[in-house]
Design a protein around this nucleic acid. Sequence first.
DNA 1: GTGTTTTTGTAGTGATCGCTATATAAACAG
DNA 2: CTGTTTATATAGCGATCACTACAAAAACAC
Lengths: 174, 174
Amino acid sequence: MRLFHARGYDAVGVAELGAELGIKPPSFYAAFGSKAGLFERALQRYIQGEANIFARALADGGDVATVIDRTLALAARLYPRRDGVAGCLVLDATRNSADPDACALTAAAKRASREALRAFIATERPAKAGALADFLTIAMAGMSAAARDGADEAALTAFAETAGRAFRREMEAD
Amino acid sequence: MRLFHARGYDAVGVAELGAELGIKPPSFYAAFGSKAGLFERALQRYIQGEANIFARALADGGDVATVIDRTLALAARLYPRRDGVAGCLVLDATRNSADPDACALTAAAKRASREALRAFIATERPAKAGALADFLTIAMAGMSAAARDGADEAALTAFAETAGRAFRREMEAD
DNA sequence: GTGTTTTTGTAGTGATCGCTATATAAACAG
DNA sequence: CTGTTTATATAGCGATCACTACAAAAACAC
């Protein structure tokens, strides 16, 4: 998970993954089936862990705008580079990847994430939940990409606060 | 330029680039020195052409907020996938690339782009030009990444308009 | 036309890619 | 301890990577 997150799916080889896990290629393929198989498990672990910032923000309760503010703030705190890892694994691990299986895995996770956001927003603003979810999806993609380009927590937090205010205004408009 | 833009720096090989240019490897290296050498020229062509949306928006004149609105709107129109190409070459061509030379080239272009934004904003709001430029940098990174993930012009335009309004408010605050 | 320089095509460099055939070592059942 | 099964290591599969040595061809000077 750490290697995929730090350098992206294509840039990390099976040999290196095996070395990190302390196993040789045959054991690797017996355990995971393929490189994409290990990536799928890494993705699941990531999504079910503390990196699922929306799930964490949702667990603390509050109305839609509050939860969204919390989600954006968590992204700003989590995304800056630490130990060579930056941004979101789901959003960025398969950028420019040539592997269709790996890309399909992240694409599915992105769809699920966007749908979770949309469904939650729809509890208060069903008519514009889709557009608001799109706004957040694009904003978080920007935070993850910027973090990978070296943006620090201060810059991401400032963006998160501005984006949160914009979200609230769009939500309350009309 | 088209191949690098569509699939990213690492995913396109010298053989394919040579085939597209109608030349064989020795001629390729005589002309460009290296794969990164051709990428540098592709980047320059991109930056000096109509893909430099800030330069285009700036050329049409107007105050800062107007030019920024125009820049975001141009990104929303330019970034969606057409002929397999989506997003911004500078922002996304070296994502997850393992080549330090190619990454240094895009990093320099990103710094130059951010500085151009900052300097222009500083003509009206010197005190907060850096923070406002960071906001736009992150927003455009999000639009480019989302476009690469399949976002259409409608979603990007909605984001651009919301981001533009947020920019104007942050600019006029205090 | 001749001799020289530049450009090109053919072929191949070593390295790495994801992945696997084969053979040995370990674990286990009786 | 024997026989069978599971798991591992060694080695290498074909393919592709960026890049280049070498030689044939094209262009040029005179």
